[in-house]
Amino acid sequence: MMTSNPALMGTAGGTFLSVVPNLDSDDVLRTVLLAAIGAIVSFGISMVLKFVLKKYKE
């Protein structure tokens, strides 16, 4: 069951609209770059741990 809460929607909208003008393109680019690096490192560590655990069980 979904209910509409105007106070919550107004607060979320106001917060969003107050944050957007303060974002620089450099900040967004840095965030995207760091997220990509984090995902790649996380995937790599997962593969290494999977390999190590597979060898350890044998």
Results as ranks from 00 to 15, higher is better:
36 A>W: 02
5 N>S: 06
32 V>C: 02
55 K>M: 07
39 A>E: 04
38 G>F: 11
8 L>T: 12
16 F>R: 02
30 R>W: 04
14 G>L: 06
4 S>Q: 07
22 N>L: 14
10 G>Q: 09
37 I>R: 06
16 F>K: 06
54 K>L: 01
3 T>V: 15
42 S>K: 05
34 L>E: 15
17 L>D: 09
3 T>R: 09
44 G>W: 00
48 V>C: 03
39 A>M: 09
58 E>Q: 05
40 I>F: 08
2 M>Y: 12
13 G>T: 09
16 F>E: 00
20 V>A: 14
42 S>I: 01
29 L>Y: 15
7 A>T: 10
57 K>P: 00
24 D>F: 12
52 V>H: 00
54 K>W: 04
12 A>N: 03
19 V>M: 15
21 P>Q: 14
37 I>Q: 10
37 I>C: 09
23 L>E: 02
33 L>H: 05
57 K>Q: 15
32 V>A: 15
45 I>R: 06
58 E>R: 11
40 I>W: 08
1 M>T: 09
17 L>N: 12
32 V>Q: 06
11 T>E: 05
39 A>V: 12
5 N>T: 13
11 T>I: 06
32 V>T: 08
45 I>D: 04
44 G>D: 00
24 D>A: 12
56 Y>I: 15
31 T>D: 07
40 I>L: 11
58 E>G: 05
26 D>C: 01
26 D>Q: 05
42 S>N: 04
19 V>C: 06
37 I>A: 13
33 L>N: 13
32 V>N: 04
9 M>N: 08
32 V>F: 11
53 L>H: 07
42 S>P: 00
56 Y>M: 10
58 E>H: 05
33 L>A: 10
4 S>I: 08
41 V>M: 03
15 T>H: 10
34 L>T: 13
23 L>W: 14
1 M>H: 08
